[in-house]
């Protein structure tokens, strides 16, 4: 089964949010649990990116690329970037993979590759 990252859609007004929030940004509905999960699209274009050379101690690599991607449905997501020479506006495609491991905890997140 392919892993997904979910956006949260307000049951009342249909607004999509990523990441999760408790109250809809658009309609401000205060009823609890009023969101449906919707899988985020995997393809999009690279909005901006960086390569980080000073990483927190959990990362056993010298450097790591990160980017913000605008997905097909217009939503944005921050993720890791495995693209040899990234350029603003290029098409990228995401996979959900382990992005951070510390002792026994594994964190899954979006990793983008060239489309």
């Amino acid at each position: 089964m392919a892993l997904e990252i979910y956006a949260y859609q307000c049951k009342k007004c249909g607004q999509l949010h990523y990441p999760f929030r408790m109250v809809c940004k658009k309609c401000g509905n205060l009823e609890p649990f009023e969101f449906n999960t919707v899988a985020l699209p995997k393809n999009g274009k690279l909005l901006t990116f960086t390569t980080v050379h000073n990483l927190p101690p959990d990362f056993n690599v010298a450097k790591l690329s990160l980017g913000i991607v605008e997905l097909e449905n217009g939503m944005r997501i921050t993720g890791q970037l495995k693209v040899p020479s990234p350029k603003i506006g290029m098409a990228v495609s995401g996979k959900v993979e382990i992005v951070r491991e510390a002792e026994y905890s594994k964190n899954f997140g979006m990793v983008f590759y060239p489309a």
């Binding site: 990483l55 927190p56 990160l66 921050t78 993720g79 890791q80 992005v99 951070r100 964190n107 997140g109």
Partner: peptide
């Protein structure tokens, strides 16, 4: 969950 886990500083 949406930034820190990726190594965002």
């Amino acid at each position: 969950l949406a930034e820190y886990i990726y190594g965002v500083t």
